[in-house]
Structure formats: C-alpha cells, structure tokens
Design a protein around this nucleic acid. Structure first.
Length: 252
DNA sequence: TACGGAAAAA
DNA sequence: TTTTTCCGTA
C-alpha cells in the first residue's frame, strides 16, 4: 500500500487531524504480547484511515464512521499485511463482525460497507481539560502515536517535541489521531466531548459529577456507563472488568 | 450484503 | 485470543 504519511506530527496542527484518542488499555495488544501476533485489524484500519489511503477505505459522514470503498482491495491490503494471500472481503468482514461484541466496531445499518468505530468510550488526549491527576495510572505502556503502529509496521512513529506525548507530564498510552468529527454537527453536550450526554438515562440528572468527570475534568469511574452493555466495565486504566465473555447474547 | 456458528490456525 | 476459513441463513 502506498501510505506515505509524514511521520511528523504535522497532522496535529493540520486542520484535518485534530484529536487524539486513547482506546482502553485492553485494546492495545502489541505484537509482542501473547495472543496478538501482529497488527490487529482495527489498528490496520485506523492506520489506513489516518493515512488518508483514500482508495480502499475512507472516513464516512459521521465521526468514527468509515466506508470501505473497495472491499476487495482492502482485503488484499490486509492480506498482504498479514501474509494471507487468500484474504478476501468475506473473511475480513467476518473479523470485523467479531468486533461487534467487543464494541470496537459497529455496523452502520443500511449503509453498504459502512462501519463505525465505537469511540464512545475513548479517552481524548488533547481535550483542553486533559491532564488527569492520576495520569500515572494510564501510562504503563510505551507511548505510541498513530496513525502508525508499532515497530513491525516498519513505519515511523510520530511523537517528539510538541507531540501528544509531550502534552502530559509523562508518556501516554498509544494514541490514535482521529479526523475532525465534523463537518457533521455532533450532539455533544457534556463537559467532555464525545461522551454521550445521555449515556445514562436512568441517572441522567443527579449531580454534576455524574457526568463521569472528577473535579479535574477527568474520568473518575468506569466508562461502562457509556456503554449499553452492563456486563463489561472498564476501570480508569482501561482494564476490562469482565463478568462475562459472551455478553450481548441476550443483551438486546 | 450481512450475520454469526463452528472449527482451525497462528 | 484474534483472526482465518467455511458456510448456512436472512
């Protein structure tokens, strides 16, 4: 693939790349960790999207939504990356569907080849109010700045002076740069962007803190509340508190 | 086109 | 564990 992004942090100041997010810690399965041999598919997708690899895949209308413009080509690229010459969209999409339960992805129904990253429980790095009081809880991994992934991609990583990793007092977990959520107006009302304002209907208006932020504007509790699924929650460091691996079976 | 079970692979 | 592979079903 011809991803020729500049490895510099230029995109941070670019009008297009404006925000970086952190996936929960569990989402980062480095190539060197057991259970994850190589790049994961969603890494790869984000990488392509971040590169503006416009041919096979591109961002869709809504924030986090992406459209696979050329399914077979995307599959080919993925196959190349994974050394699976027989990869095709049917298989790739099966892998994508496995993300549904993990809530990494969601299908945009009615829109062909359109999926959406579930960014609802991501932590924004460059939100103005950032600088969690307990950032050390979040920083037990090497900083990583995307769109590019770790070393094995052979691609340069961003980072450096002025980069995201410079924003906080210490290193940050892996970050992904995301495209500006707009032009589509987003229903973001809470004090913390991208956290659905009405995430908890049943607790909607209790006290201000119920927004999920502590006095410092940082998340102070599990982001499970952002999620529809009650069986999995996430603590601050992003660890999965699971009580059931096979959630959603009867969730809806 | 999309979904998800099942089983194998890595 | 995360895909990959295959496939029946909608």
């Amino acid at each position: 693939m011809q991803c020729s992004c500049n490895s510099s942090v230029g995109h941070l100041s670019s009008p297009y790349w404006s925000r970086a997010v952190l996936f929960p810690d569990w989402a980062y399965k480095p190539a060197w960790s057991p259970g994850s041999r190589q790049v994961q598919l969603w890494h790869f997708l984000l990488e392509l999207l971040g590169c503006g690899e416009g041919g096979a895949i591109g961002w869709g209308g809504e924030w986090g939504e992406f459209v696979i413009r050329d399914p077979e080509r995307l599959a080919r690229l993925w196959g190349e990356r994974k050394g699976k010459p027989h990869m095709n969209y049917d298989k790739l999409s099966r892998a994508l569907r496995y993300y549904y339960n993990k809530r990494i992805l969601h299908k945009t129904k009615g829109k062909r080849f359109t999926y959406k990253f579930n960014f609802s429980k991501l932590i924004l790095v460059n939100y103005p109010g950032y600088l969690p009081p307990s950032s050390h809880q979040l920083v037990h991994r090497a900083p990583l700045c995307l769109p590019f992934l770790p070393s094995e991609s052979g691609l340069p990583l961003c980072g450096g002076p002025g980069s995201l990793t410079d924003r906080a007092a210490g290193p940050l977990p892996h970050t992904f740069l995301l495209p500006k959520p707009l032009p589509v107006p987003q229903p973001l009302h809470g004090p913390f962007p991208f956290i659905p304002a009405a995430a908890r209907p049943e607790v909607s208006q209790r006290e201000p803190r119920e927004s999920g932020l502590n006095a410092n504007g940082w998340l102070h509790r599990s982001s499970a509340d952002w999620d529809v699924n009650p069986h999995i929650s996430w603590n601050l460091s992003g660890e999965k508190q699971q009580d059931d691996d096979r959630v959603e079976k009867h969730a809806d």
